[in-house]
Nucleic acid binder design. Structure first.
Length: 269
DNA sequence: CAGGTCTCCTGCTAGC
DNA sequence: TGCTAGCAGGAGACCT
């Protein structure tokens, strides 16, 4: 389940692998994955495009090409593998980018991932990037901003933290960690949070995500940034998937708006 | 506008 | 032991 740190890790690994490489051909085995055009157009447009840079916006990967941006969202299980031409294509490898000496294959067991191919100009003002909130390190992400965005939110803060139109990059794992570090009960309504609590959320969001990026992300279930690359942040998790809180109190697992949520009743008020 | 529910998918597993 | 219902969850669609 890639969240911001995992996507950042994938981005860095991919940069070391495919920058300045030219796409010679593309194979799309699962056309529904291509969101904004027919897959045949997608293939034609990508031919002879060179990878100039790779960026990240929220949980989106942005491949900058000569004439386009290729956007890729890994959703739950998306992964990129570098493979040789004669390596067997497995049933979960849905999009294959052929370069001169190797292939980049997009692997996604549950087929939730999506790709867009956009004209280069105004990508941040068009779907799907146009409704994203601030990056965790954006100066504009402050208490006043959250106050305004949360003022009508009756939903639990756990749910609201996952809202990508407010802050990008937080997924289910890090939301639990952020709330734990901020000592906030996940059920607390977003609109009722104090300035102090909002401040803590901002600080802890940055801290948790920064630390996770340094450790290459979290490997809990099926996520790997590239074959054989595993994150180490799972060793640092304080509540998510835990049974006992560092305070020795039992960690509770509940469902909040359908999402598995771990928290400590004693530490999080 | 806000929020609830459903949907997309497949692999794994708890429980019979 | 073998089968299956249920669960996992990011995000958009759709409805209230």
């Amino acid at each position: 389940m890639p969240e911001l740190p995992e996507v950042e890790t994938v981005k860095e690994v991919l940069k070391s692998q495919i920058i300045n490489q030219t796409i010679l051909d593309v194979v799309v085995n699962y056309p529904k994955m291509i969101e904004n055009m027919d897959y045949l157009d997608f293939i034609e447009k990508l031919k002879n495009q060179t990878v100039i840079d790779i960026k990240r916006r929220g949980k989106w990967l942005l491949f900058e090409l000569n004439d386009y941006y290729l956007l890729s969202h890994l959703r739950m299980e998306g992964k990129y593998y570098i493979k040789n031409f004669n390596d067997e294509v497995t049933k979960h490898q849905h999009v294959i980018f052929k370069f001169k000496d190797f292939e980049l294959r997009y692997n996604d067991t549950r087929k939730f991932g999506r790709m867009y191919l956009l004209d280069k100009k105004n990508i941040y003002n068009t779907k799907p990037l146009n409704e994203l909130g601030y990056e965790p390190w954006d100066d504009k992400l402050d208490v006043d901003y959250l106050k305004i965005r949360y003022q009508n939110k009756e939903n639990p803060i756990k749910t609201v933290l996952l809202d990508q139109s407010i802050i990008v990059g937080i997924g289910n794992i890090y939301a639990d960690e952020i709330l734990y570090l901020s000592k906030i009960n996940p059920y607390k309504k977003a609109k009722t949070l104090s300035n102090e609590e909002l401040k803590n959320i901002i600080i802890n969001t940055k801290n948790v995500l920064e630390k996770a990026i340094k450790l290459g992300g979290t490997t809990i279930k099926s996520y790997t940034s590239s074959e054989g690359v595993h994150g180490k942040f799972q060793n640092e998790l304080l509540v998510h998937t835990k049974k006992i809180c560092p305070c020795n109190h039992k960690v509770i697992k509940v469902k909040i708006n359908g999402r598995g949520t771990y928290y400590c009743e004693k530490c999080q008020k």
